[in-house]
Simulated scan of single mutants.
Amino acid sequence: MEYHFAGCTLNDARLTLTRAGAQVAVEPKVFDLIHLLVRHAGDLVTRDRMTEEVWAGRIVSESAISACIAGARKAVGDDGKTQAVIRTVARRGLMLVVTVTVDEKEPEQGPSFNGWENTQRIRYASSIDGNRIAYAITGSGPAVARFTPNMINDLEVEWNIPTKRRMTDAISRQNLLIRSDTLGSGQSDRRVAELDFARQADQMCAVLDAANVDRAAVLSESGGVLPAINMAARHPDRVAKLIIMGGYVDGPERRTTSRAVDPIRTSIDAGWDKSQRGFLMGWMSSYCPEGPLDDLRAITEMARNATSKETMLAIRDRINAASVAPLLPKVQCPTLILHARHDAGHPLDEAQKLAAGIRNAELAVFDTANHLPLAGHPLWDQYVSVVTEFLAH
C-alpha cells in the first residue's frame, strides 16, 4: 500500500518514504514507527504499542525511543516544537494528526534485487587466479561495496542475522549494495594459497566488474579496513568515498615493543572446535561487551563455520603485523571514520591516526565500548543514520 500524508508518501511494499517527491533515507526502526503511525492516523499509539511493534517487545531505553521519534519527525518534515504531523500526548504516546489517504493499488515492479526480499541471490565472480568469489546485490542507486572483517562472514548465514540484515536493508533503500565473502570464507572458494590485503582489494574490483559497476563507495568494518584502504589507495578510480568503522593503522604487534601472548589468537585456536565454542564467545564479547548478546552469539557461530581454523589463525597473524600507514596519503576520496571511544580491541588513538593520515578525513566518535554497534544497542540508530547520510550525499 501507499500512504499519502503531509506531502509524504510511504510505500510499505518497497519500504520507501518520499517527501516532496524526493526519497528520504530512514533507518529501519524510524520507518517502522512512521508506518505504525500512518496505519493508526488520528488514534493514540501508546509507548507499549510502539515497543511491541517497532522493537519486537524488547526492553528499550527512553533515549532510544526519543531518538527514533526525533528521526521520524525529521523524516516527515516535522520537529518536536511544531509537532504539526506527529504530536506527543504527554505520558501516553504519539498521534499522527494529519489526514492520510491510502492507495491500495498493486505497486509497480521493483528492482530485481532488493534488501527486503525473503531470499537473496548469490552470484560468483572470478579472481585473477580463477578462484570463485561469492557476492550478492540488493537495492538500487549509487553503488556501495562492503568489506567485512576478514574471514568471518558468510553471505547465506548473515542474511538471517538481524544486525546484519537491518544494515543491509537500511543501505539498500537508497543504494545498490554489493556484499561479498572474502576468498577463503563463506560461500567463496575456500582453497586460498595466499592471504594478502592488496589482493583482496583486487578481488573486490573483480566483483565490481562482474556486477557491471565502475565506481563505488566503500564501507569497511574492523579488519575489513585493511583491504578497503588498499583499494582506495591503489584503485582510486574505483572508490567514490570511504567509510571506516572500528579501523586502525597498525596491527596490535606494531603498537607495542612487548611480545605478549595474543588472547584473541588463543581464543581462536581453542574455540574453533564446536565443543569449545565458549572461547569464541569470549573473543566476540571482548569486542562488544555491551551486547546485545543474541546477535553476538549468531555472529560468533557464523565466524566459526565461515572458514577453517588454520585460515583464521593465518589471517590473525597477518592482521597483527599489518600496517597501512604508507597508503594513507594516497587515499584521496571523501572519508568518514567512525570509532568507539572505549574500544578495547583497537584504541581510539588508531582512529585518530587514520583521520590525521587521510587528507580531509572526518572522525565521528561513539560513546561506547562496542567495537561495532549491534541492533538493539542504544547507539544503533545513530550509527545507521550517520552511515546512510554520508552515503546519500
Rank of each mutant, 00 (worst) to 15 (best):
M167A: 05
F147A: 08
M204T: 10
A364I: 01
S275F: 01
G115F: 08
L37Q: 03
A303H: 01
T51G: 12
G282M: 12
S285N: 14
A198I: 11
R277S: 11
H342M: 00
T368H: 05
P149C: 15
W272R: 01
F390N: 09
I178Y: 04
I171T: 02
A64C: 13
I178V: 11
M204H: 08
V38E: 09
V89W: 12
W116E: 07
K74E: 15
T119F: 12
Y124M: 12
V24P: 05
V102W: 03
I59C: 15
H346E: 14
F197V: 04
S275V: 04
G376Y: 09
N175F: 03
V97Y: 12
W272V: 03
H393D: 14
V38T: 09
A228W: 04
L155M: 06
P111W: 01
S185H: 10
V38Y: 06
G246Q: 06
R190D: 00
A270D: 06
R318K: 15
K74D: 15
L363D: 04
T307C: 00
I358M: 14
W116A: 03
D169N: 05
T16P: 00
Q83V: 07
F366L: 09
S61H: 10
I319R: 04
G186A: 08
G184I: 08
M151K: 05
D262F: 03
K309Q: 06
W55P: 10
A198C: 12
G247A: 12
S285D: 13
L176K: 04
L96K: 08
W380C: 00
D317V: 13
M302D: 02
A64P: 06
P334N: 11
R215P: 12
P142Y: 13
T256K: 01
A67T: 15
L94W: 05
A364D: 13
R123E: 00
A369W: 03
I65N: 05
I268A: 03
W55S: 10
K105L: 12
